[in-house]
């Protein structure tokens, strides 16, 4: 039985746009080392918000359990959020997590390679290893030397997306989270990129969580699906992500 990386129980986020109140709840969610999980559901249902909570960008408003493996023990993140323990949260973000958002996630004044170097440095990884990993991932993700030396704002959406994925994996984190990583890619390229991600995570025993609309591809690559379920009532939308579904 591989060790668990992430454990959430009844963690809720409450959002409001003034007219409506959105409630998002993650139930029975456990992710083990090496596991592949795909969050699926229609657009606007809250997949990105869930991923933001999972990669420690958004504190849950309520929760029963939110634990994260730091390599030795499972840390109580509900307590860390309550105590504003930035040191603990920052340590996990820099070393244990790799996050590829749909947009942004890089420093626009630095090239793809420099962004990767920065990511490796922040994780405390030796530069020689970062360079080696960058070369390997760039080759697997089909990033040319021109694309690697260009600043992200000079690249196409697909090239930029692959650059951000490289950056999310360059420091071999225990958990890689990617928000619709193949959305900007051609279908054939999307499959190749997803295979690279899955293969890379498997090689280092990392868990991989993605949000996607391509359920078939996710199934084909062995992802466990967590499907969003939503109920709406006047002035309120409630979404549940249940890990046992």
């Amino acid at each position: 039985m591989p060790p668990q990386i992430l454990r959430l129980e009844a963690c809720r986020c409450v959002l409001s746009d003034g007219a409506r109140r959105f409630t998002l709840e993650a139930r029975n969610m456990t992710v083990a080392a090496g596991e592949r999980v795909a969050i699926v559901g229609p657009s606007g249902i809250g997949k990105s918000t869930l991923l933001e909570m999972l990669c420690l960008l958004r504190a849950p408003d309520q929760g029963v359990q939110f634990e994260f493996d730091d390599g030795e023990t499972m840390l109580d993140l509900l307590r860390a959020w309550q105590r504003h323990d930035e040191r603990m949260l920052n340590g996990l973000r820099s070393r244990r997590l790799g996050y590829a958002p749909q947009r942004g996630g890089y420093f626009p004044a630095l090239s793809v390679d420099m962004n990767a170097l920065l990511r490796g440095d922040l994780a405390g990884q030796e530069r020689s290893r970062t360079r080696k990993m960058t070369d390997m991932l760039a080759r697997d993700l089909s990033l040319t030397s021109r694309e690697r030396s260009a600043r992200p704002d000079r690249l196409s959406a697909g090239e930029r997306q692959r650059g951000v994925l490289l950056q999310a994996m360059v420091h071999s984190p225990a958990l890689v989270i990617a928000d619709e990583p193949t959305a900007a890619l051609h279908p054939t390229q999307a499959e190749a990129v997803l295979r690279v991600m899955a293969g890379r995570c498997a090689a280092v025993g990392a868990a991989l969580i993605i949000s996607t609309h391509d359920i078939e591809l996710a199934r084909q690559l062995g992802f466990r699906l967590i499907v969003a379920r939503s109920t709406a009532s006047p002035g309120m939308v409630e979404t549940t992500f249940d890990g046992r579904t």
């Binding site: 973000r93 996050y99 958002p101 890089y106 420093f107 626009p108 922040l122």
Partner: peptide, 14 residues
């Protein structure tokens, strides 16, 4: 601001 936020997400200290 946005790129700096991204750096915080990547583990850069406040």
């Amino acid at each position: 601001v946005k790129p700096l936020m991204a750096m915080r997400v990547n583990g850069m200290t406040r």
